[in-house]
Computed example of a mutant assay.
Amino acid sequence: MTQIRVKGFKIFKDRHGKPRCYHRETGHKIDLAQSPIGSAEFFAECETIRSIAEAQKAKAPKAGTLGGLIHSYFATEHFQNLAEATRRDYRKCADFLEPIKGTPIHVIDTPLIAGVHDKAAKKIGWRRANMVRTLLSEVFRYNIPKGLISANFAKDVIPKRRPRDRAYANRPWTIEERDIALGKAKPHVRVALALMMNTGLDPSDALRLRKDQVDGGTIWGVRGKTGEEVAIPVSPTLLAALDRMPDHNAETVLSNSRGEAWTYNGFSTVWHRFKSALENEGLIEKGLTLKGLRHTVATTLREAGLDERRIADLLGQKTPSMARHYSRSANLAEKNRETMATLEKENERRAKIVKPSPESVKPDQSEDEI
């Protein structure tokens, strides 16, 4: 009986005496029932697997290139511990750099990276270009200790400035816009907006907030983007909003209409549909974002006279001059209680100055539309 051998493949019999075959490098198995050993179908399958493996190998970043450095950074613990949204944005930046991934390390310098930065600004905009610069800076920084590159050639590249004619990104909401949104939103959306309005939590952190993180009248958590601890007192306004929330069994504070935890994409879709409807009715101006609610809290407190350090403590923002330890969260709770009281009073004061007409805040009657 002739023994068939194919380079790169292992052909054998298992402990039950049944013939098996797989590609050594990739582990891809061949279904010998459909492609018997020695048949034309068998050799065709082997050739297909080999071609796919070679194509994938050619596509993989090579050592000693920019692509290799990026691949090395993506494997670091630092990258794996970044917020999901940040990892997603960095991968998009890597996609932009795909055409030059084969650039040898020895030709990389600051002028080259500055040129890449300029080209990115023209193609994908100033904000994304700055993100590309940030990614490259992190890639170089984490590969220097490995001896893979000599310096951080992105560090001295000057970030692009926001064009003067660009609108305020994530602008603060007005009192009228907050009242209209709360009045028009369905219960599950309304309580989510109220949570962001009365805490300054980032939308992703608000949607992930678990019930067990609310204890003793305080929200205890960690900001996903920075890893900073936050201790946010639950104000009377927020408590009233939470009490009106429909019952659900999700482990998160917020839930969708099915009683399940919101996904970020799910809430974003509902929010966009809801916001567009309000814009079409002329009830709100364009430019409202969920992140803008975080800016609203910061702006309100700043205008009320609070210093930036106290506002940063409430929002879980990190500063180079002050590193805070986990145990300090307990101390933050009392200080933030005073901060939250200021926010509550300021919102009440502004609401008395400008009150929307009753017609503009009537809840919708339909339960199927946002």
Results as ranks from 00 to 15, higher is better:
R5E: 01
V6Q: 13
V6M: 14
K7N: 08
K10N: 11
I11S: 05
H16G: 14
H16V: 03
D31N: 15
D31L: 07
Q34S: 10
S39Q: 04
A63P: 13
T76Y: 01
R91G: 14
K92M: 00
F96R: 12
T103L: 12
I113T: 14
D118F: 03
E138I: 02
L148R: 09
I158T: 11
R166L: 08
P172I: 09
A185N: 04
V189G: 02
V189I: 01
L195C: 05
L195F: 02
L201T: 06
P203F: 07
P203D: 02
W220D: 05
G221D: 15
R223D: 02
G224V: 03
G227P: 12
A231K: 10
I232V: 09
P233N: 04
P236C: 03
L242G: 06
R244W: 02
P246K: 00
N256S: 05
T263P: 07
F267D: 15
E279M: 09
R294T: 02
T296P: 13
T300G: 13
G305L: 09
L306E: 10
D307H: 11
I311N: 09
L314G: 07
G316Y: 01
H325R: 08
Y326A: 13
E334S: 15
E346I: 01
E348I: 10
V354Q: 09
E359R: 11
K362F: 01
K362L: 13
